[in-house]
């Protein structure tokens, strides 16, 4: 941790300790600095969520030949804030036959998981929460927890639509986790590391999307399914299952669900940029700007996919996963294996 914020964090920590008269200790310094970085990452995630929410609404509206939000703030920029305030001001309703603890608990845990995975992702070469040697694996392990928690949430609400949606979620999980992990393995093989920092620095001359375009396509489709964005949004298929696992969820929890929705797009876009588009590598502009541009571009592409693709059917999605993506990801792995041998 050698960035501006972390050094500032250490200074602030030592100042606090000086005021309180506690002996200086590296562990406490580190802890306070990590906390500050964590808060900074959360602020960035929130800003992204907010911006992404606005961009999604405006862009989809443009594709629909509508105007989107225009009333609250300039260009409707404050609309999302107004919506969140409205949602949090409303009463939380818990269905009579819901399991209270699981129903109330699972959504915040999902939100926490996505926030936690955002902490592991480095934002610039010098600004990150923790650089774990197994960061890539940690993120995917965290993301894989989500469908299970959603299954619990759907089951806990005691609603049939919610439980059908939860079952679909688990089906998607088992068919899309495998190609995703095989592609990650090929990325790690190419970079010879699971650490995001080294993966990005390995791409400083050539992005991985050029080295393994097939892997990128598989990864993108599988990630869309993993994050359950359209056309794989079976979990919230609102013309079929009303709102899926959120059918019985009250307003404040729904606000959390929206936060989850946007945060997972952040995590997904970050992963795509870090693993395939060279992360913060780019000429002239500072790394953070490059990263922001790339992440927003991926997020906008995700929105365009949403506005132009009809939802797929469950059995077709499973077939796509098993018959196309798994073999293609294995072919990609072999290709990367050959590539690694050739380079060495």
């Amino acid at each position: 941790m050698d960035s501006l914020i972390t050094t500032m964090g250490i200074k602030i920590a030592s100042a606090i300790q000086g005021v309180l008269g506690i002996a200086q200790s590296a562990a406490i310094n580190y802890g306070i600095a990590a906390l500050l970085v964590g808060i900074a990452v959360m602020i960035i995630v929130t800003i992204f969520d907010y911006l992404f929410g606005w961009i999604e609404r405006k862009l989809v509206a443009k594709i629909h030949l509508r105007h989107g939000p225009t009333r609250v703030g300039k260009y409707g920029l404050l609309q999302n804030a107004a919506d969140f305030l409205k949602l949090f001001a409303k009463e939380n309703i818990i269905p009579a036959n819901a399991n209270r603890l699981l129903f109330l608990g699972s959504l915040p845990i999902v939100a926490a998981i996505f926030a936690l995975s955002a902490e592991v992702l480095p934002l610039t070469p010098s600004f990150y929460g923790v650089d774990l040697t197994l960061g890539l694996l940690i993120v995917f392990v965290l993301i894989s927890f989500v469908p299970i928690l959603i299954f619990i949430a759907g089951w806990a609400s005691g609603n049939k639509f919610a439980s059908i949606s939860a079952q679909r979620s688990v089906m998607m999980l088992i068919s899309y986790e495998i190609p995703l992990f095989i592609v990650i393995a090929s990325v790690a093989m190419l970079a010879k590391s699971f650490s995001f920092i080294s993966i990005v620095s390995a791409q400083s001359s050539l992005w991985y999307v050029a080295l393994m375009p097939l892997g990128f396509v598989v990864f993108f489709i599988a990630l869309l399914a993993e994050l359950e964005r359209p056309p794989f949004d079976l979990r919230e298929a609102d013309s079929e299952l009303i709102a899926g696992w959120l059918t019985d969820v009250g307003a404040p929890l729904y606000a959390i669900a929206l936060f989850i929705d946007y945060t997972r797009v952040f995590v997904g876009s970050m992963l795509i940029v870090l693993l395939f588009f060279g992360g913060w590598n780019g000429p002239y502009l500072p790394p953070s700007v490059w990263l922001a541009i790339k992440v927003l571009a991926v997020a906008i592409f995700v929105v365009i996919v949403r506005a132009t693709t009809p939802r797929m059917r469950l059995d077709r999605i499973l077939r796509l996963g098993w018959i196309w993506l798994v073999p293609l990801s294995i072919i990609n792995l072999l290709w990367v294996f050959l590539l690694a041998i050739a380079v060495v």
Partner: peptide, 17 residues
């Protein structure tokens, strides 16, 4: 109908226009 088939809200809005 398109909206029911696959949540394709774009066509829905175009048709309404």
């Amino acid at each position: 109908a398109i909206n029911d088939v696959g949540q394709l809200f774009s066509v829905f809005m175009w048709c309404f226009k």
